[in-house]
Structures are given as structure tokens and as C-alpha cells.
């Protein structure tokens, strides 16, 4: 098994090894390797153009890798595509469906292409996401289009769900429903492979995460393992002005910023805060606020180094 943070003795359902794909001379992905255990909810993070969709489209046998292997349930993604597709539910990054069909017609059609689905479950999904199936696809809002695509991916209770930016365009209420659907899938032992650049979404639903950047995997680990590299912020307000320099050289302090004419400091900390707490105790402290960092912060760290737009990285 490549990557860390995985629970032992669970077989891998997705195995990707040194997968490489380029588009003419342009970069796609290079030597991408990771594996996903059965029953896992795996997050695949990266900014726009990092290679998430290329990786997913290779898994779906929509494009063929230049080199390397990708397997799902032990089957080669390209050579055994048909068998694999019986196991999979898929949400593409930019879903396109026949504009002139209604949502109901689209779902009926794909249900038939899959050889029939559990109608009761399908209707439950429609109710759950509150989809009006009578409207034509072209008349749907972005969020409703996404609902149609999500339902078609879940409706046959696939063993593996491959979801490329699945919640893009969904409102918070439906995002919550989606989180519930992913949780239920996991409880039923199904595997979810979810790409996103919305880190809070991954934080809520995923057990493990891989980060891809410029076509290369830069980090794989459990959510908690990733936490050990994250930084967090503490803002300390004092009863009297305090020199920010007093904290600058302390162990674990990455950044210091003086606020309110020295009446407060904001510290970015990596690792233990012990030295900071002891140093602060020498002054009259009015308040101390700690901000728990999110995955967005971790993610940003990977992209701020080379000056790549942080906003793009977090998708804001």
C-alpha cells in the first residue's frame, strides 16, 4: 500500500501506480501513485489544473494513460473497463446531459442503461435532494443539474463512487444531504473517491486525503496525519503594550504580527505552543484565542511557496 494513514488488513479497491498522462507536450499527471481501501472515503485535493480530473478520467477509461497502471477491484481500468463500470457510479467534473430531456427522462434512461435499478431507492434519492423531475435539463439551475448527476451516480448503489467536484453548485442544505449520502455509502461499506478543492468538504467526509499539485502527488495521509503539519493561530490580548519581538524567536512560532499598537499579538504556530504560553504568562493577559486551522490552511501551505494564487488553491 502506498501512502500512510490506512487501517491495516483492508484490501485496496483502487490501486494507482506511477500513472502518467500528457496531452501532446502539455503536462497532465506524472507518476501518480496512491491506493484506496475498500470502504474508505478518500479525498483527492488540488487546485484547478493540478491533474485531478485527468486522474479520474483515466480511472474511468475515458482517457488512456501513457504509462503506469490503474486498477479498480483488481481489474485494469482500461482493459477491463466494462466490468469496472458495473461497479461504479460517476459524477464528472463538468456534467453534460441531453438538454432536451427532463430530469426524470435522464434518470430513467441511465437506469435502463444500467440494466435497471431499485426504483424505491431512486425515488428516495429524488425526494431527498428535492429534485423536480419534470423540468428539462436546460431549464435547471446549476445546482439542480448537479442533483440529477448525483442521483444517477448513486441510484444503483455502486460499490465505488468516483465523484469529481460533486458539490459544486449545490446549496448548503443539499451539500448537507450529500454529506449524509456519502456517510451512508461508507456505512454500507462502499468506497467513495471524491475530488475537490473545497477542503472543508473533504474534512467533513473523508478519512484520507491525497494532495496533487502540478500533476504530482505531494502528500497522502489520514486527516489526522495531515494535522501534524498544519499551523494554527493564537491571538493574545494584553493589559499593556508588549513587544512582538518577545515571541518571534520562540520554538514553534512561524509568524508574529503586532495588533492594536502592541496591545495584542497574533501568532502563527506550528507544533507545540508550550514556549508561547510560558512567554505570554510573563505579561498581564486579557484574553487568548486559538483558531483551529482547517484543511484549507494545510492546502494553502503547499501552494503559497511558489507564489501560486492562494485563492485559486482554495477555490474562493
Amino acid at each position: 500500500m502506498s501512502g500512510s494513514g490506512k487501517e491495516a488488513a483492508v484490501p485496496d479497491i483502487i490501486e494507482v501506480d506511477k500513472l502518467t498522462k500528457s496531452y501532446g507536450g502539455k503536462r497532465g499527471i506524472k507518476d501518480v501513485s496512491f491506493s484506496v481501501a475498500e470502504g474508505e472515503v478518500f479525498g483527492f485535493l488540488g487546485p484547478n489544473g493540478a491533474g485531478k480530473t485527468t486522474t479520474i478520467r483515466t480511472l474511468m477509461a475515458l482517457i488512456r494513460a501513457d504509462s503506469g497502471t490503474a486498477r479498480i477491484a483488481g481489474l485494469d481500468c482500461w482493459g477491463r473497463a466494462l466490468e469496472i463500470k458495473r461497479l461504479i457510479g460517476y459524477v464528472p467534473g463538468e456534467p453534460a446531459l441531453d438538454r432536451n430531456l427532463t430530469g426524470g427522462q435522464i434518470l430513467e434512461y441511465f437506469a435502463n442503461l444500467r440494466g435497471g435499478v431499485d426504483r424505491v431507492y431512486l425515488k428516495k434519492l429524488i425526494e431527498r435532494l428535492d429534485l423536480d423531475t419534470s423540468r428539462k435539463f436546460r431549464q435547471y439551475s446549476t445546482g439542480n443539474k448537479r442533483k440529477v448527476v448525483l442521483i444517477q451516480a448513486f441510484m444503483h448503489r455502486p460499490r465505488v463512487l468516483i465523484l469529481d467536484e460533486p458539490t459544486s453548485g449545490l446549496d448548503p442544505l443539499n451539500q448537507q444531504e450529500f454529506d449524509g449520502m456519502v456517510r451512508e455509502a461508507r456505512e454500507e461499506g462502499r468506497t467513495v473517491f471524491l475530488s475537490s478543492h473545497v477542503l472543508s468538504e473533504v474534512e467533513k467526509t473523508c478519512t484520507r486525503v491525497a494532495i496533487i499539485r502540478d500533476g504530482n502527488i505531494v502528500r497522502i495521509g489520514g486527516i489526522h496525519e495531515l494535522n501534524d503539519i498544519k499551523r494554527y493561530e493564537i491571538t493574545i490580548a494584553f493589559a499593556q503594550p508588549v513587544a512582538a519581538d518577545a515571541f518571534a524567536r520562540l520554538d514553534g512560532v512561524a509568524e508574529v504580527e503586532a495588533l492594536n499598537d502592541g496591545m495584542a499579538v497574533r501568532l502563527a504556530i506550528q507544533g507545540s505552543a508550550d514556549a508561547v504560553i510560558k512567554a505570554a504568562a510573563r505579561y498581564p493577559v486579557v484574553s487568548l484565542t486559538s483558531y483551529e486551522p482547517s484543511l484549507e490552511d494545510i492546502f494553502l501551505r503547499y501552494y503559497e511557496r511558489d507564489g501560486q494564487a492562494a485563492k485559486e488553491a482554495v477555490g474562493v
Binding site: 475515458l62 463500470k85 460517476y90 453534460a96
Partner: peptide, 14 residues
């Protein structure tokens, strides 16, 4: 070109 085959090809249709 418009991506209409993407989901069709995600179903078990060769």
C-alpha cells in the same frame, strides 16, 4: 465534444 458521451460511457456499455 460537448461531454454528452461522458456519463453514457460511465455505464456498462462498451
Amino acid at each position: 465534444e460537448e461531454g454528452l458521451l461522458e456519463i453514457v460511457l460511465s455505464t456498462p456499455q462498451p
